[in-house]
Nucleic acid binder design. Sequence first.
DNA 1: AAGGATTGAGTTACCGGTAACGTAGAGATA
DNA 2: TATCTCTACGTTACCGGTAACTCAATCCTT
Lengths: 340, 340
Amino acid sequence: MDRILSNKNKKISLSEVAEAAGVSKMTASRVLRNEGGFSEQTRERVLAEVARLGYLPNRLATVFSGDQKSTFIGVSIPDLGNEVFTHVLEGIDRKLSSFGHQTVLGMTQRAAGEEEKWIETVLAWQPAGLILTGRAHTNRSLQLLENAKIPVVEIWDLNSSPFDMCVGLNHFDSGYQMGRYLLTKGYTRFGYVGTSHDAANAAAARLNGFDRAIADGSASLKKQLLLKDVPGFYTGYYGIEQLLSGAPETEVVFFQNDNMAVGAIHFCESQKISVPRDLGIAGWGELPIASVLPYRLTTVQVNHLRIGQIASEKLLMRINGDSARKVTDVGFRLIEGETV
Amino acid sequence: MDRILSNKNKKISLSEVAEAAGVSKMTASRVLRNEGGFSEQTRERVLAEVARLGYLPNRLATVFSGDQKSTFIGVSIPDLGNEVFTHVLEGIDRKLSSFGHQTVLGMTQRAAGEEEKWIETVLAWQPAGLILTGRAHTNRSLQLLENAKIPVVEIWDLNSSPFDMCVGLNHFDSGYQMGRYLLTKGYTRFGYVGTSHDAANAAAARLNGFDRAIADGSASLKKQLLLKDVPGFYTGYYGIEQLLSGAPETEVVFFQNDNMAVGAIHFCESQKISVPRDLGIAGWGELPIASVLPYRLTTVQVNHLRIGQIASEKLLMRINGDSARKVTDVGFRLIEGETV
DNA sequence: AAGGATTGAGTTACCGGTAACGTAGAGATA
DNA sequence: TATCTCTACGTTACCGGTAACTCAATCCTT
């Protein structure tokens, strides 16, 4: 009845191919790896049997025997629902797959210590390297990574002394610069809306930087709102409503990302609050959504795809035995838009 | 100089743990699997050595020896840049990881035949099952799947006779219903804007259904635009501009997804084109972005997350030896919004 | 024509676990 | 007391490839 269950005959192994071709397993192996040491006649016989029997090599055996390294790369990201990280992941997978590697995904946002469990599980599969988002790791995680002796890239938040390698940007600085910029625009009453839902360490760093800039400018952050929700349009829309009802004197609001900022702009439009005349709005990350606004959003531009690509490149270099720079700062650029 | 290269000592194996504990490899294995057949004293000694040496089991060896199945699940999606599929992927990975499985990602949109190559690569790793997006597979792909003898779920587009199992919805019908609905609203001049960029078989089915409905209503699709771009806001924004410049008499436009529809609405706002008075706009997929519009978007609601969850559940059931329904239709719901 | 190099194979061992089987000693049973 | 049954291990073999080694036949050399 069941196609799978009824069909119990196991997979074809190299020995069976070899036997069918009338040669030894080793000779068949040589033919498949094109290693030389066989006649043209033998080659044809072996390849004919490979095709006839539908032989597929078992990479597990190769890697297991230690002759080759695995081509798995473990990639942990906090959240697929967050557009920012899907762009990073896209950059990673594109690069890796074009070099014959496989991305083994891990979403590790849901609970603290989740990453540790994931690292342990994925290491048991002998990956060739790991890419981890963020730099908060448990002691045991670090121990596991130490023992694994594989290259590791931490992405997103820049770390001057990473475990191994690191690519990202200085989130604190990006928040600080935004704060400075808004001060030069003459604002004195600031607000911030973000989420505490995800592994928002980087977002927290941005907020800290923003806060510091304002303090350095002898102003102060009037109201900050950390919602327990995903950082999307919707959250921005209702976040701004909530913030304004609590602190209507706010002049400008910095959002965790562009999606939230655009949501806020929509709220303002619906309430006839003029941006930037009545209220300034700043986002972060330059997400595609901002492109459709009739005016340019004030935001911070980050090349998410590039973070993923560089992380993959570092890993690939090290896997190939070359050395790679410990820290790569992809930087950011403040976009002086028309919403403040 | 290099942490990795200088540290050549290989990983600790079970034999080494066993030796250190003064027992045989087999006894150590029994302790770790809690299989019984050892004394409390032995157990403590082995576990102490495991902790001291930082032993991590090599799952490759276990799976390779055929004693256990692998916990890999290969998941191929066309595009991570497309929000729709990231939601599906999120549903998949959540479910799989909570049952101790690993998602091995594959992005197979970029070129035809890419999926075949990916299937071949990933099968060599002996995955426990596969999830494939869409139902267009090459003959060789089908051959490979046949030989692999593992459960396979095709997702997204519903298929009455899937290779193995299938979960999704009838895209043709969803397009047809939208067409019928717009006809009842009295429209006679229709437009469509989508992309030809991704594996848009499902989107093509929606367009076909839409087209058929219009033909059945004795009207006709005036203008259809297939842009070579990603199906996002931006593309919708410029797509509608292009469509209207070519066919200004168009009364209502159906978009490939909500992102594009919202982009179009933004364009209309910027051009003082009133929606729905001057132009009707319909989307597809009920993406979060639509929530921020001041009015409800006319669209088709689909539970993307659920598709991923059900696909994973089917796979897990079959991996555990139970049977699962061949085809699951998650359905869709036409949202009669305020934009037509 | 004897010795050396080349070609086209085959043989053995190994990777790290686990199934299956074997076994010595302690305690229970007839 | 002889046998039987546990308990707590140890031993062997195997999974599917590949490295390292061996070896016979052929082809050049000088």
